[in-house]
Amino acid sequence: MTVNLPNLGKDLTGLEHLTPEQIRLILDTAEPFKEVSERPIKKVPALRGKTIVNLFFEASTRTRISFEFAEKRLSADTVNVAATGSSVSKGETLVDTAKNLEAMRIDMVVIRHPSSGAAGFLGQRIRSNVINAGDGKHEHPTQALLDLLTIRDKHGKIEGLNVCLVGDVLHSRVARSNIWGLTKLGAHVGVCGPHTLMPRGIEELGVKFFPRIEEAIEWADVLNILRLQLERMEKGFIPSLREYYRVWGVTPERLERSPRPITIMHPGPMNRGVEIDSRVADGPHSVILDQVTNGVAVRMAVLYLLAGGRPELADAAKRGTGAGGGGSAE
């Protein structure tokens, strides 16, 4: 039965080390889970009896809620731990946090942490599955996966598309995960923004750099517009939000000059009138809310697969045969 189906391994810490097959597996598994959220009773028993801790060392609203919905709709038991600031500032080290979680015999941890590599660090030290919900400037794999799913829904494919990430690529874990995911699935990836917000050597990752938004718009099928953290201005990466909007803001006037309709994406939360004009965010080509909807399905797929669920049984799982059918999460 299980003939060389790819699996995800124990943890999902990023897309850099996944194969294209593994990424497609997650996207394909997400498809049947989309429907669960459309039901009047939004619950399937796939993860019944599993204990999941959502461990958030950084403020987050939508990612945490999205994970929590995904877990609850799969019938898992969930606990939210919101540690504002880092564990270190609380006096407990990440190692101690890990050991304590392990001692409570939980099944999965969803972690967001301000330090790059924190999710992998945790994964190496506990037996439970670890899902990275954003670690520093490193990766935010489920965000990129939901972006991929949304692009695939809209365009029917990913391969061959020109997708441009616009804005603060330097500090963006969303950008890094998107670059890996998109290139692995055969898209052409561009980045656009001020030189001060571009990581060193970015073009060596096979990415095309556009210094000006007009050039990016001319090239792209999809614009994924990154949130500009307001603190970037305070730290001197850009002189002002006003000028940023003037030079790199995505406006209807600029989009009009595109030879084709451009799909507009944004991982949220948006700064309307800074990186994105409201008319674009609310416009006909915006799929920003589809991204949010897909986020729940993608996270259900990741949770299901890491718990040992078999992709070919995802449909059956919805009807109540539970996770696994052979897979062992322990």
Partner: peptide, 10 residues
């Protein structure tokens, strides 16, 4: 500061 740092997000 180089490509490895860019990839690791450090």
């Amino acid at each position: 500061e180089g490509l490895v740092a860019s990839r690791l997000g450090l």
